[in-house]
Design a protein around this nucleic acid. Structure first.
Lengths: 203, 203
DNA sequence: GTCTATAAGGCGATAGAC
DNA sequence: GTCTATCGCCTTATAGAC
């Protein structure tokens, strides 16, 4: 609890710096300064900048793509599953608003495609599509393109966190107000999902 | 037509390199190589890396936020305006799929907030909100939060281009197939917009 | 494990000849 | 306008004392 190892201090500092500046913009000196150690220690614990980054990325990905999938199983209908996903996802996003940009900027790096493969998207195919086609067949939901729909839900959810600096600047709000706006957004998005998925009544 | 000035060659090369690697990742040497000139020329035409980037950013922003706003005025209802916006926007996005990440990564840069102010969002307040409240009052559209709705439309539109590398890797498609997928996405998004905005019939 | 000092190379930028 | 050569700094990484 009250003992903090050097390795923990490094990881905490590295998280901050990599997330703020991205891989290329991050400086080992700044990480060392924030961890209140010297540069040589960084290389003692994690051989290189690349390896330190890898460690942080894996650690953070585990946070953003957590065991939501397991919990999703307990919800019956597809619509409820998606709404629950949004709720849970926003809990994480509001807690770690910098995460989306960190991940997006990493997977868009020219050379390293191997980061992409670390994204755990297995639960999509298992739960998402299975549940979708089940509810579609029984007429509980409208016939939309499941892939495009999934990308849309992700986009609606994540985008405000990617454009956060612009939103803050353009409408003139601070971090606290942004957080409130995102809190309110949950119900709005769930409403959109229901409006899209609920079949039109032909009675 | 067939004469290409050195300045034009530099701009073309700089576009590519800045878009691929971002500001921090971009190297003046690589820009020089692609332009088939030497490094010194870059500084002769554009004093510094920062000023060259500024030039590219302004140029590119003019492409992505074009005179759509003017054309939007000709569409009567709010729903039609939004659908038209998606259509026009996707024309540009499909043509320049790297642009969203370029802009997002620029506005997320720690220090320089001044880039954000160059984003032309004036048309939003003028046309978007005015048309929204007009249609809302006459009962033509459902009562949603206009700001959250706008962010959602932007998110649904832009997100696939930000997660393009992941999408290509995870579902195993090439550039051509991605382009087709985005072409199909236009109608899907327009459908979502209509489903969200069309009021429920209480007859 | 932790430090200081320094290596080794890459970077943006400039000087100066042509 | 265009080139070669080089400066001066910054960055990652290591050597070696404690």
């Amino acid at each position: 609890m009250w003992i903090v190892t050097t390795e923990e201090k490094i990881i905490k500092a590295a998280e901050e710096v990599f997330i703020e500046h991205g891989y290329d913009g991050a400086r080992m000196q700044e990480i060392a300064d924030r961890a209140e150690i010297n540069k040589a220690m960084l290389h003692y614990y994690f051989r290189s900048k690349e390896m330190l980054f890898e460690k942080i990325f894996e650690e953070k990905v585990k946070v953003v793509f957590p065991t939501i999938s397991e919990q999703m199983k307990s919800y019956e209908g597809f619509t409820d599953k998606v709404c629950f996903f949004i709720e849970q996802y926003y809990d994480i996003l509001i807690k770690y608003p910098f995460m989306p940009f960190f991940i997006i900027s990493t997977i868009n790096r020219k050379d390293d495609k191997h980061f992409i493969k670390k994204l755990p998207f297995g639960f999509m195919k298992e739960i998402f599509f299975e549940s979708f086609f089940s509810d579609l067949q029984s007429g509980k939901i409208r016939e939309v393109n499941p892939f495009q729909f999934a990308v849309s839900v992700m986009g609606m959810s994540i985008f405000p966190f990617l454009s956060r600096p612009a939103m803050k600047e353009l409408i003139g709000i601070n971090d606290e107000q942004f957080q409130l706006l995102m809190q309110q957004r949950i119900d709005e998005l769930k409403n959109y999902v229901k409006l899209i998925l609920t079949p039109t009544n032909h009675a």
